[in-house]
């Protein structure tokens, strides 16, 4: 087998796309044609393929994190416009006036809980990518963490847009046609943006990085919570975050609804939802310290 065939095989084994493979092999083929017999000086094809794959995996992971954040921003605008126009011009019909509570409650979860998950996971993915933008080859475990954050964010983003669509269906007989069209169209547009970002992420995940090193965690990303004391007690971080979120929303709702009782109820629900989110998704988004993580190896091993 020739040096170029070895290189092509190694690039393929690391998930480098056909387009990139063809280009790399053509360039190296030209190099060898310039000075026949120079293969030894080009180095080990496996090492060269690894170098290409590590750098490509890093660049693609960063790109997918930014694409995810951008798509979430579009989805956030779609949600915000739908809710603002609903409240100001279309008049909120009350949850019991829809077609079915089996539609309403999933819609509510999608429109209230999912956006918060998307915001946290998407921001963490983009922040890690931004913070490490000068690194040419990120460790495979760190790439896997960025991918997981982006995946959680996109899933939550899709759930949000699905929630809006369910809401549109649930109140299709109660709300004005213009609002149904507006909200349904915006949610579809937001969903399309998320689909494009999901494709970018899927492409990024095919490239296998072999670079060693730790994934890092939320304590590396956010110096505010980066104290050694808190890092040793990750569940306390979850409890504190849930408390802060619950208190903030409780105070907001108490003010908005002119009812302390209403504020306490919604604050409790919000705090509980945040705690459940931390338990279910904390590991996936790196909210546990790296020392407790088992994430090592290639990005394909997610």
């Amino acid at each position: 087998m020739s040096w170029l065939e070895d290189l092509s095989g190694e690039l393929y084994a690391r998930g480098v796309t056909r387009r990139d493979r063809v280009r790399i092999v053509a360039e190296l083929s030209d190099h060898i044609a310039c000075e026949p017999g120079c293969e030894e000086r080009l180095g080990d094809p496996r090492a060269l393929a690894t170098s290409f794959a590590d750098e490509l995996a890093t660049a693609e992971a960063r790109g997918s994190a930014f694409a995810t954040f951008g798509a979430l921003a579009v989805a956030a605008v779609a949600l915000a416009v739908s809710l603002i126009t609903l409240g100001r011009f279309a008049h909120y019909p009350g949850y019991s006036n829809g077609l079915s509570t089996a539609l309403f409650f999933p819609a509510l979860l999608g429109m209230v809980v999912a956006p918060q998950v998307a915001l946290v996971a998407g921001t963490l993915a983009a922040w890690r990518a931004l913070r490490r933008r000068w690194v040419t080859s990120l460790p495979a475990a760190e790439i896997a963490l960025i991918h997981r954050r982006a995946r959680v964010a996109l899933a939550a983003g899709f759930a949000t847009m699905a929630g809006v669509e369910l809401y549109v269906v649930d109140f299709s007989e109660r709300l004005p046609a213009w609002w149904l069209g507006l909200a349904g169209g915006l949610a579809a547009a937001g969903g399309f943006g998320l689909w494009v970002a999901a494709r970018t992420l899927a492409r990024a995940r095919t490239i296998v990085s072999g670079a060693a090193g730790p994934a890092g965690d939320i304590y590396d990303d956010l110096p505010v919570v980066g104290s050694g004391w808190l890092r040793a007690r990750p569940w306390l971080l979850g409890a504190l975050a849930s408390l802060v979120v619950g208190l903030a929303l409780g105070a907001f709702e108490a003010h908005a609804e002119h009812s302390v009782l209403e504020g306490i109820q919604r604050g409790l629900v919000e705090g509980l939802a945040a705690a459940i989110g931390f338990v279910l998704l904390g590991r996936a988004i790196g909210a546990r310290p790296a020392g407790q993580s088992t994430d090592r190896g290639t990005s394909r091993s997610e």
């Binding site: 190296l28 080009l42 180095g43 060269l48 170098s51």
Partner: peptide, 30 residues
Amino acid sequence: HGYAILQRLKERSSGAFDLAEGTIYPALHR
């Protein structure tokens, strides 16, 4: 092109920069 860049590097450095030639390509792509 890649080979010419490598030759220029060698010439301008009077042979001091005699790299493993493949290393230049990932850098060019980056």
